[in-house]
Nucleic acid binder design. Structure first.
Lengths: 198, 198
DNA sequence: ATGGATGTATACAGATCTGTATCCTTTATG
DNA sequence: CATAAAGGATACAGATCTGTATACATCCAT
């Protein structure tokens, strides 16, 4: 019988450690030895679970994908009740994310920056992550009755990306506030009001 | 007398090669030997001009900084004549940038993704690049008579960042079009009313 | 022309990287 | 208890990385 929530398996320990180190120092700059040291797992065990570093990288990205999405969506849905307020809450959640000590930008954006060759597994994982996030936003746009939900979702996604990068590079966590202000304008424009103003 | 535009100096060759390889494969993944091979300059000469790889990295980033800004601003100013149309032209120029074969995202964003420690020379260079770009936008906002030029400049900068990352990660060059559409809304909102000026 | 600066070519030192092998201990389960 | 699976500790192979050293060629100005 497997212990599910008792103590984490070696595999989970490795993946968690890898996620942390990749986020902090990048993928190429993080060696296997460093992961081994920080995870308290030997190299042999690592290569028993993953055939290569690349496989560990993919596992780490996929794990973080699910983890982040769960956490992010749950926070947004907890912070607000209606679709419209939830769309705005996205940027509040983002701001608390940006303000964390352990904020090193988006793991997937950084990963793509290190891996320029398209149509690789890594690139698919990163692309997928962004697509899923956009779909989450899209659902809220549909629920709020936006006139062009697809367009609004793309716009809000782009705003979120911009906020992430601005917070990271320019070290301005309040980039989230700027994005939120713009988001409010776009959402209002697409709201199913019966009074069109010019 | 130095030959200015005759043939490039070894220093320039090295920097140009470094910029290209860093953009394509990232900084950590690009070794000195690779730069040496592609530049047609020996390792000794490299270390005669730069004391370390880090110094070459900084020189490459600074060089690209000036190069990109010059090219980008000139293109924007060529494409449109009035401040308002120039602000929109930014996103047209961006789109042609995104559509290039050699588009690997923003060199500075990618560099920060690989170097998480703040308050380093590299991070300053990247921050500076973004600040200068925002200032370029700010000047246009002031010229067009925006009611809150600082705010508009921050918003448009954020949109540009979002477009860059979306084009890179999701491989959608038309992210520029999305950003432009939003930009148009924001610019219109801040445009001075059609009242005769003094 | 000639000496100093600059460059080429290449070998090498020392560190680090990925991945494998060896030997031993722990642990789970029939 | 017995046995097999899993893991710990460590050494090692081969490649690659940064940076240095050695020996020779080329160019330019006094």
């Amino acid at each position: 019988m497997k212990q599910e929530s008792a103590r984490p398996s070696k595999r989970e320990q490795l993946i968690q450690t890898a996620v942390t180190l990749f986020a902090q120092n990048g993928i190429h700059a993080t060696g296997i030895d460093t992961i081994v040291e920080h995870s308290g797992v030997t190299k042999k065990t690592l290569y028993a679970h993953f055939r290569s570093k690349e496989e560990l990288v993919l596992a780490a990205l996929r794990h973080y994908d699910g983890q982040f999405r769960n956490s992010f969506m749950r926070q947004v849905e907890t912070k607000a009740r209606t679709p419209k307020t939830r769309l705005l809450a996205i940027f509040d959640v983002a701001e608390t994310w940006f303000s964390q000590q352990s904020f090193y930008g988006c793991l997937f954006i950084n990963a793509v920056g290190e891996h320029s060759i398209p149509d690789t597994s890594l690139r698919y994982v990163c692309k997928d992550f962004k697509r899923m996030l956009t779909e989450f936003i899209l659902k809220l746009c549909i629920q709020m009755g936006a006139r062009n939900p697809q367009r609004l979702a793309e716009e809000l996604s782009l705003l979120l990306e911009g906020a992430i990068v601005t917070a990271q590079v320019s070290q301005k966590p309040d980039a989230a506030k700027i994005a939120k202000r713009v988001a409010a304008v776009l959402i209002e424009k697409q709201s199913p009001h019966e009074t069109p103003q010019t």
